[in-house]
Design a protein around this nucleic acid. Sequence first.
DNA 1: CTAATATTTTACCAACTGGTCAACTATCAG
DNA 2: CTGATAGTTGACCAGTTGGTAAAATATTAG
Lengths: 209, 209
Amino acid sequence: MGRTSDTRENLINSAIELIGTRSYNAVGVQELCEHAGVKKGSFYHFFPSKRDLTLEALDLIWKKFKEDTLDPVFNSDASTLEKFGTLLRTSYEYQSSRKDCTGCVTGCGFGNLALELSTQDEGIRKKIEEIFCEWTRYLERVVVQAVEEGVLPPETDPAATSQAMVAYIEGMMLLGKTFNDPYMLKRLGEGVLQLSISRKETAEAYSVG
Amino acid sequence: MGRTSDTRENLINSAIELIGTRSYNAVGVQELCEHAGVKKGSFYHFFPSKRDLTLEALDLIWKKFKEDTLDPVFNSDASTLEKFGTLLRTSYEYQSSRKDCTGCVTGCGFGNLALELSTQDEGIRKKIEEIFCEWTRYLERVVVQAVEEGVLPPETDPAATSQAMVAYIEGMMLLGKTFNDPYMLKRLGEGVLQLSISRKETAEAYSVG
DNA sequence: CTAATATTTTACCAACTGGTCAACTATCAG
DNA sequence: CTGATAGTTGACCAGTTGGTAAAATATTAG
């Protein structure tokens, strides 16, 4: 019954586009509405607040990232080396295209919002934490596979290593954005494989002082 | 001649404290003034804009970080392993204390502002880029030393490796903030040493597809 | 003691913030 | 054709945003 419309989706996509290239606080409800071709009243018909829109936008980009990148890459029968390589290359190409059309390397939408809002909005922080956890689990499976293939050493701790990889990838995106240089991702990408952490060895190495 | 005051310093310190625990856009000029015990007119007597205050705040935290952490650690005659270990432990302890007194892991002030403002303010982006460059140079010297000590393999590329380390540390801080868990830094810290990149080997490993 | 100067204060601004509400309109199921 | 329902609209709100300008007040060097 009643009318149907794609206003809801338009608003979510506008949020992804605008907040993704600038920041949460730099984009107002007004601008979001103008970009979506919608009046402010409609905004609050669909979303109780800007924050709730953002939460849904996070869900959507994570879903898309899984469908478009993570699943195709990690469900393929490629070697682990190829899988990591493809993931990194995809990130590089995406940031490259962002720079071409917006003038800026925009970085990772999750990392961006995490640093801007984690200390101020527990709900958003929690959501991104969960996304990072899921992402880590994706990588963990490949790390296990890599150990089986002999690409990573047998003492490798898959949980620690995959989390370190997520950290490294986020740091890579952060530097790419800071230097506004997509090529940074290409160069840094070469380091991910180095991150295989074997608990026993390294834990001791640092317990000085 | 004329009056003297510490209003300027107070404002810079307020900016470090407030923007550092929240975000640039979440803290207004008004609040900055209240925290510094100063009227808004005084603010604009010393700084042409909030942005300029922020630029100076960045200078100060970088200067302090060098004096309090980087210089003491890296000019010591400790082994490279101890140097990296101390740097990491200092980060952990600082974020730990932040959590104790603010309730939040606040992360790296440079990374925070970089992700929030890089696409919107070229001057701030450039300043943080320069800071990351200087930081990389600090680490590079230690990487060279580590190669000499035999802690890192002789094929190590010091420039690439030190940059990868900065990326990794920033990613570590990002995850620490996202999970609001200082212990994350402790666990992830164990991975830095793995990052020694030898150009020839890894570059080829990824040139698939 | 004075005069030049540095700092502080007060009052003000237009533009914008996120958000509300009630009236209005299009649309779909029966 | 009707009525319930879903979506749209525009006017409105109080509070805040970054920033301005001029008058008032300390302070210090000479």
